[in-house]
């Protein structure tokens, strides 16, 4: 074989492998999508071809499942978490990016480190405290602990974006007579806006998918969507068609959000470690 033929041969193998990989990546998602549109009977008969029905999506919002409540809880908890996290993180990120602070490295490492502390460790004291304060099973309590996982992401990510804004623009504005606060409001915030938006979406996804905190801290009123999945365990086994419909309601909005910010997705996740 000549070099070129070998190259073509490899190319065919590569494309085959890529297609197989793509297929494997999609199977579980497709499987859920299919099941969500099947009737109860069809699910248990393993049908690949079936008459699709929207019935499941109606059922999950009815009693006794009331997925609507969970949807509202998830939206409020994730949304409010982001509304708190982003402004606070932006201030800190600006300061870390533009000034030399005492203990700057220590603070940054600490913030980074909290990201890696196992959630089970954090949640025990909160559980005890919330039990005493009556905050168990409230959205407020959930929002407070969610800040713990979202803040480090937000700070590091936004810092990365602000690092990318050229210093000269700011200095020019200062020379022209702006105060620091004006510079932040008129120059930095507009320029960092896409970054803040990206970080916001990112944090929203994390808070939306959060599981352990909600599992421990809620049981009725403040239950979020991922925990809601447990509702579909019945005496006779799991109700897969309903589980799948709920699964779609959980994952579809996140897919859309993730695709909107896909350019920054990886960068955000590694928090500037790999660039």
């Amino acid at each position: 074989m000549t070099g070129k033929q070998r190259k073509q041969f490899w190319n065919v193998i590569q494309i085959t492998l890529i297609l197989i990989a793509a297929f494997i990546m999609l199977i579980p998602i497709i499987w859920i999508f299919l099941a969500a549109f099947k009737t109860h009977v069809d699910v248990y008969q393993l049908k690949l071809f079936f008459t699709p029905t929207l019935e499941n999506f109606g059922t999950v919002f009815d009693a006794p499942y009331n997925l609507g409540n969970k949807l509202i809880n998830s939206t409020i908890v994730a949304g409010v978490t982001v509304l708190f996290a982003i402004p606070i993180a932006t201030c800190a990120a600006y300061s870390f990016s533009r000034f030399r602070l005492r203990f700057e490295t220590s603070m940054l490492v600490m913030i980074l480190a909290t990201q890696f502390v196992p959630a089970v460790v954090i949640i025990l004291p909160f559980f005890v405290m919330f039990r005493d304060l009556g905050l168990l099973d409230t959205r407020l309590g959930l929002i407070m602990v969610n800040l713990a996982i979202v803040m480090p992401f937000a700070i590091w990510m936004i810092k990365g974006f602000i690092d990318g804004i050229p210093l000269e623009t700011e200095e020019a504005a200062m020379v022209d007579g702006s105060t620091r606060v004006q510079v932040i409001r008129n120059i930095v915030l507009p320029m960092a806006a896409p970054g803040l938006f990206t970080a916001g979406i990112f944090c929203f996804i994390i808070a939306w998918n959060e599981f352990l905190f909600a599992l421990i801290l809620t049981n009725k009123d403040a239950v979020t969507l991922p925990i809601g999945l447990a509702l579909f365990k019945a005496e006779e086994g799991d109700l897969w068609n309903l589980l799948s419909a709920a699964g779609i309601i959980i994952m579809l909005p996140m897919f859309i959000l993730a695709l909107i910010i896909r350019k920054y997705f990886v960068q955000g996740m590694t928090m500037g470690a790999v660039r």
């Binding site: 000549t2 070099g3 070129k4 033929q5 070998r6 190259k7």
Partner: peptide, 8 residues
Amino acid sequence: VNDDLPKD
């Protein structure tokens, strides 16, 4: 050499 790889 059209069909040769750089290394060859």
